[in-house]
Simulated scan of single mutants.
Amino acid sequence: MSSLLSQSSSLIAFVRVVEAGSFSAAARSVGTTPSAISKSISRLEKKLNVTLFRRSTRTLGLTPDGYLFFERVAPLLRALEDSEDAIRPTGTVRGHLRVSMPSELGRLLLPRIGSSFLAEHPEVDIDLNLLDHHVDLISEGYDVIFRVGSLGDSNLRARTLARMDMALVASPDFLQARGQPATVDDLRDLPFVRYQLSGRTLPILFENGETLLPKGRIGLDSGFGLRTAAIDGMGVAYLMRCIVQQDLNEGRLVQLLEKHALPALELHAVHAFGSNTPIRVKLFTDFVQKQVQQLSRSGVA
Rank of each mutant, 00 (worst) to 15 (best):
G114N: 15
K215L: 09
G223A: 07
E266Q: 15
T211Y: 05
K215G: 07
A301C: 02
R188S: 14
K290Y: 13
L265A: 10
Q293P: 07
P75G: 03
D221E: 05
P278G: 00
L44G: 04
S24T: 11
S171N: 04
A20T: 03
S56A: 02
V144H: 01
G199S: 12
R98A: 14
K46M: 08
S38Q: 08
L11P: 08
S171F: 00
L131N: 09
I87E: 13
M166R: 15
G235H: 05
L44E: 11
P278R: 00
K282L: 01
A170D: 05
R163T: 12
M166L: 15
D125P: 00
N208S: 15
F206E: 08
R43M: 14
I231H: 01
R88C: 10
I41V: 13
F192L: 06
V73S: 06
T57V: 05
D127Q: 12
V18W: 06
V18D: 14
D127P: 04
L156D: 15
Y142N: 01
V300I: 04
L68W: 08
Q289P: 06
S116P: 02
R55L: 13
D221G: 13
L187K: 08
A177H: 12
L108W: 00
T90P: 03
V300A: 07
V254P: 00
D186S: 08
P181G: 01
K282N: 07
T201H: 03
N129Y: 11
D189I: 02
F287P: 01
N155M: 12
L190P: 04
L283Y: 05
L283G: 02
H96R: 15
H260S: 02
G141S: 10
I87A: 13
I145K: 04
Y238L: 06
I279K: 10
V270N: 07
R88Y: 05
L187C: 04
A36S: 13
L267H: 08
L110R: 06
L48Q: 04
I113A: 14
L262R: 09
N249A: 14
Q293A: 06
L4R: 06
T160H: 07
